[in-house]
């Protein structure tokens, strides 16, 4: 439990730039949490179904899976700590942080990195779900799950092009998966 608290403190304090940047930090620590790639994919799906900030949802999920409700609460509170420290400090000193060029400059770098991190995680999920390899260097190109590949491509395009509600896309994909069982 202590390890989880420390991990989510770290994720909170390094989590600049929103939920997806934090998601990539969670993915990086996934092994330490005992989280499989499948469970990580399920976490991302639940993020789309359950309301609330991605970081809070993720901390609750990881905590619950690794140690039950108490650990879920501890992980969630840990990820909240940066906000609770920063807000009183900032309002106390009222320094105009945005007047310094350093902050936006660092954020530009971090946001660019977050794009690459998320893209890599998406690619790793694809490799795992479609080709059953968790390591790209071990890719053999043998048995592939074509239905999963089809769903990945369709959902990405449907979300970007036609702005179909992610909740609906998740439900449709689940239905399609269920139907495939009887074919």
């Amino acid at each position: 439990m202590l390890a989880i608290i420390v991990a989510f403190l770290k994720i909170g304090f390094l989590g600049f730039g929103g939920g997806y940047a934090m998601l990539s930090l969670i993915f990086a620590e996934a092994e330490r949490f005992g989280l499989t790639v499948q469970q990580f994919a399920d976490l991302n799906a639940l993020d789309g179904i359950i309301p609330g900030p991605i970081a809070i949802n993720s901390a609750t999920y990881v905590g619950q899976l690794s140690g039950g409700l108490g650990t879920a609460l501890a992980a969630t509170l840990a990820v909240c700590v940066p906000s609770l420290i920063i807000v009183p400090l900032y309002t106390h000193f009222e320094t105009k942080l945005n007047d310094h060029w350093q902050v936006p400059a660092m954020l530009n770098g971090i946001k660019a990195a977050a794009v690459g991190l998320i893209m890599a995680i998406a690619a790793l999920l694809l490799l795992t779900l479609v080709f059953q390899v968790t390591d790209i260097t071990r890719w053999s190109g043998k048995s592939a799950d074509w239905l999963s590949l089809l769903i990945i491509l369709f959902v990405a395009i449907a979300d970007l092009r036609w702005q179909i509600n992610p909740l609906l896309l998740i439900l449709m994909a689940g239905l399609l998966g269920g139907l495939s069982y009887y074919l």
């Binding site: 997806y20 499948q38 994919a41 399920d42 991302n44 799906a45 789309g48 794009v115 998320i118 893209m119 995680i121 998406a122 999920l125 694809l126 779900l129 479609v130 799950d145 239905l147 999963s148 590949l149 089809l150 769903i151 990945i152 491509l153 369709f154 959902v155 990405a156 449907a158 979300d159 970007l160 992610p166 896309l169 998740i170 449709m172 994909a173 689940g174 239905l175 399609l176 998966g177 269920g178 495939s180 069982y181």
Partner: peptide, 19 residues
């Protein structure tokens, strides 16, 4: 099988978020 479909959708949504 249902979860397999949902996991694929989840990966698709991540690609879209990255884009």
């Amino acid at each position: 099988s249902v979860l397999t479909g949902i996991r694929a959708a989840s990966a698709g949504l991540l690609f879209s978020a990255a884009y």
